[in-house]
Amino acid sequence: MSINEIQDAIVEEFSVFDDWMDRYQQLIEYGKDLPPIDERKRTEQYLIQGCQSKVWLDAELRDGKIYFTADSDAIITKGIVALLIKVLSGRTPDEILNAELYFIDKIGLKENLSPTRSNGLVAMVKQMRMYALAFKAKAE
Rank of each mutant, 00 (worst) to 15 (best):
Arg62Asp: 15
Arg62Gln: 15
Asp63Gly: 14
Asp63Ala: 15
Gly64Ala: 12
Gly64Tyr: 05
Lys65Pro: 07
Ile66Gly: 03
Ile66His: 04
Tyr67Lys: 11
Phe68Asp: 02
Phe68Met: 06
Phe68Ala: 02
Thr69Phe: 11
Thr69Arg: 12
Thr69Ala: 12
Asp71Ala: 04
Asp71Asn: 09
Asp71Gly: 03
Ser72Ala: 14
Ser72Gln: 09
Ser72Met: 05
Ser72Pro: 11
Ala74Ser: 12
Ala74Trp: 07
Ala74Lys: 08
Ile75Ala: 13
Ile75Phe: 09
Ile75Trp: 04
Ile76Glu: 13
Thr77Val: 15
Thr77Ser: 15
Gly79Thr: 00
Gly79Trp: 01
Ile80Lys: 05
Ile80Val: 14
Ile80Ala: 05
Val81Ala: 05
Val81Tyr: 01
Ala82Trp: 00
Ala82Val: 02
Leu83Ser: 03
Leu84Ser: 04
Leu84Trp: 03
Leu84Cys: 12
Ile85Asp: 02
Ile85Ser: 01
Lys86Arg: 15
Lys86Ala: 11
Lys86His: 14
Lys86Asn: 13
Lys86Leu: 14
Val87His: 04
Val87Trp: 03
Leu88Lys: 03
Leu88Ala: 03
Ser89Trp: 09
Gly90Cys: 08
Gly90Glu: 07
Pro93Val: 01
Pro93Ile: 01
Glu95Lys: 06
Ile96Gly: 04
Ile96Pro: 01
Ile96His: 02
Ile96Gln: 03
Ile96Asp: 01
Asn98Asp: 15
Ala99Asn: 10
Ala99Tyr: 00
Glu100Arg: 13
Glu100Gly: 10
Glu100Trp: 10
Glu100Cys: 09
Leu101Ile: 13
Leu101Met: 11
Tyr102Lys: 12
Tyr102Ala: 08
Tyr102Gln: 09
Phe103Gly: 00
Phe103Thr: 00
Asp105Pro: 03
Lys106Tyr: 14
Lys106Phe: 12
Lys106Glu: 15
Lys106Trp: 15
Lys106Asp: 12
Ile107Gly: 01
Ile107Gln: 05
Gly108Asn: 12
Gly108Asp: 11
Gly108Ile: 14
Gly108Lys: 10
Leu109Gln: 07
Leu109Cys: 06
Leu109Arg: 09
Lys110Leu: 15
Glu111Gly: 15
Glu111Pro: 08
Glu111Gln: 15
Glu111Met: 13
Asn112Cys: 14
Leu113Lys: 09
Leu113Ala: 10
Ser114Val: 11
Ser114Trp: 04
Pro115Ser: 14
Pro115Trp: 05
Pro115Tyr: 08
Thr116Lys: 09
Thr116Tyr: 08
Thr116Ser: 14
Thr116Arg: 10
Arg117Thr: 06
Arg117Asn: 12
Arg117Pro: 07
Asn119Cys: 07
Gly120His: 03
Gly120Pro: 06
Leu121Phe: 07
Leu121Arg: 05
Leu121Gln: 04
Leu121Lys: 04
Leu121Trp: 02
Val122Asn: 14
Val122Glu: 14
Val122Met: 13
Met124Trp: 00
Met124Ser: 02
Val125Leu: 09
Val125Arg: 00
Val125Glu: 04
Val125Ala: 01
Val125Gly: 00
Lys126Ile: 06
Lys126Tyr: 10
Lys126Met: 10
Lys126His: 13
Met128Arg: 06
Met128Pro: 00
Met128His: 05
Arg129Cys: 08
Tyr131Gly: 00
Ala132Cys: 11
Ala132Met: 07
Ala132Asn: 09
Leu133Glu: 14
Leu133Ile: 06
Phe135Arg: 07
Phe135Ile: 07
Phe135Asp: 11
